[in-house]
């Protein structure tokens, strides 16, 4: 009972984590993109504390890092999708049930057909064999 509870909790936790990962990644992609665009603003007549070239370098570096963040978030999403796919394939109950019942039905049908054909074959061969036996045992050449 407690094992079942922990299992369902684990499942809930797992699916929640998938949700969270997805939201985080998408949020990260959008936010980083917005920040890159923001950084493209040229400040008008602002006396900054930092030297201009340094600020330029810093901005370039920040854009670089944010772009990498966007790419990383995208790749995390891909990994998430692959995880979801795997989970779906392995744990989708209705489809597993259906697969098992379909397989069982198919196999049983095939087996019944094989057996019925064998029975028909048996009957045919039995009648042929009767005549063959008759012929063989009545002949003088054995």
């Amino acid at each position: 009972m407690s094992q079942q509870k922990t299992l369902s909790q684990n499942k809930e936790a797992l699916l929640k984590s998938y949700n969270k990962r997805m939201k985080d990644d998408i949020k990260s992609m959008v936010d980083n993109f917005i920040e890159i665009i923001k950084l493209a603003r040229v400040p008008q007549d602002e006396d900054s504390q930092v030297l201009r070239p340094l600020q330029n370098n810093q901005d370039q570096y920040e854009m670089h890092v944010r772009a990498c963040n966007v790419v990383r978030a995208g790749e995390c999403l891909m990994k998430l999708i692959s995880d979801i796919k795997q989970y779906l394939v392995l744990n989708d109950f209705p489809s597993i049930n259906e697969a098992i019942s379909q397989n069982t039905r198919f196999d049983k049908n095939m087996q019944n057909e094989c057996d019925s054909r064998l029975c028909l074959l048996r009957d045919d061969v039995a009648s042929e064999l009767y005549e063959l036996e008759e012929e063989y045992y009545s002949s003088a050449y054995k």
């Binding site: 890159i36 950084l39 493209a40 040229v42 400040p43 201009r52 330029n56 901005d59 370039q60 854009m63 670089h64 944010r66 772009a67 990498c68 966007v70 790419v71 995208g74 790749e75």
Partner: peptide, 21 residues
């Protein structure tokens, strides 16, 4: 100069994103 520098930064950022894509 600032504009040019910004554009350079944008180019590099775009290049990274496009390479990743």
């Amino acid at each position: 100069a600032i504009l040019v520098a910004k554009k350079k930064g944008l180019v590099s950022a775009a290049a990274i994103i496009q390479k990743g894509a």
